[in-house]
């Protein structure tokens, strides 16, 4: 496997980074980087960590990094997590630094602890913290419950002062969305599986409306809606497919939530290098964060409408003769 850390890979322009991934030889990982500058979304770091964690440190080759910003990788804990040497020296930030280094989460207790400790690290006000806690909890729980990922969930987050945004990456190397969804639905492609996973009320655990006792198939729809209402990026990549919710124009007063992600302003593709597992990246702007309770009103409306329409599709039709 080969990964090149470019001088700019954020959700808006992540496509060339993804296309440049080489996942062909799973026994080795080679990490290279831009010589002058490395500026990457936490999801990219999480992907690098996830690939490396399935290997022995001796099977990971990271070239000597020269970019001025190389200390970022060290600060985010990439080398430590992978158990590889690095000659990059940093002065540790005081705990007030606004980032969450790469963290591996294996179970429910670790997740609860992570969420409790995360908010003070990011210096968030309660109103700003609400959607972020929500997103991390639901996405990591998805990994713990469905992914069967040998490396658990890899999470990292970073505050960006210029855009006043928290950027979060959550990655696993599990079975991927298609396998999970196809336990109860028929998704012939990875892209269709991603589409179904984002529709409210569709879960891999059952075909029944209302889900099972523990799964409703609502988590990803809620998260996409949080991004949409705040006009932020949201990206999901699994197998050979990638779906990206694009930012909607600021000029529009009202954002209309859509149950079908393909009706959102988006980009998508199904010719990406194959990712065994699932990658999710999301940006949450702190200055535009809508009231969470207002968002819930909109979600409720779309959710109920979608369930009703789906039930109606299954109604028996009168036979007129």
């Amino acid at each position: 496997m080969k990964m090149h850390l470019s001088n700019s890979a954020f959700l808006g322009n992540i496509d060339p980074f993804l296309r440049g991934l080489d996942t062909s030889d799973p026994a080795k990982l080679e990490i290279t980087a831009n010589k002058k500058w490395i500026s990457i979304h936490p999801v990219v770091l999480s992907m690098a960590a996830a690939l490396g964690l399935n290997l022995r440190p001796s099977d990971i080759k990271c070239e000597k990094l020269e970019a001025v910003s190389r200390h970022y990788l060290k600060r985010m804990g990439l080398f430590k997590l992978l158990g590889i040497e690095s000659d990059i020296r940093i002065r540790e930030h005081e705990p007030a630094g606004r980032f969450i280094p790469l963290t591996q989460i294996y179970n429910s207790e670790e997740l609860t602890r992570f969420i409790t400790e995360m908010i003070p690290l990011l210096h968030l006000e309660p109103k700003q913290a609400e959607p972020i806690k929500y997103v991390v909890s639901e996405l990591v729980r998805n990994v713990l419950e469905h992914a069967q990922s040998s490396c658990g969930a890899i999470v990292a987050a970073q505050y960006y002062k210029k855009s006043n945004t928290i950027r979060i990456g959550i990655v696993d190397t599990g079975v991927g969305i298609k396998k999970t969804i196809n336990q109860s639905h028929d998704a012939p492609t990875h892209l269709e599986a991603i589409r179904l996973a984002l529709i409210p009320g569709i879960t891999g655990t059952t075909k029944k409306e209302g889900g099972t006792e523990t799964n409703a198939g609502a988590g990803l729809f809620f998260i996409k809606s949080i991004a949409q209402i705040n006009r932020d990026f949201f990206m999901i990549y699994s197998g050979n497919a990638m779906f990206k919710l694009l930012k909607s124009a600021d000029g529009r007063k009202h954002v209309r939530l859509e149950a079908d992600p393909f009706k959102n302003r988006h980009s998508k593709g199904e010719d990406y290098p194959f990712w065994n597992g699932t990658v999710v990246g999301i940006d949450i702007s702190l200055s535009k964060t809508s009231e969470f309770s207002v968002l819930l009103d909109l979600i409720r409306e779309v959710y109920i409408k979608t369930v009703r329409e789906r039930k109606k599709e299954g109604y028996r039709k009168p036979r007129f003769i």
Binding site: E209, A216, R300, K311
Partner: peptide, 19 residues
């Protein structure tokens, strides 16, 4: 809280639509 009330309402509503 306001958000907890709304979350409960969402779940109660979709469950009643579903069963």
């Amino acid at each position: 809280s306001e958000t907890v009330k709304k979350m409960i309402t969402i779940v109660v509503d979709y469950m009643q639509e579903s069963v």
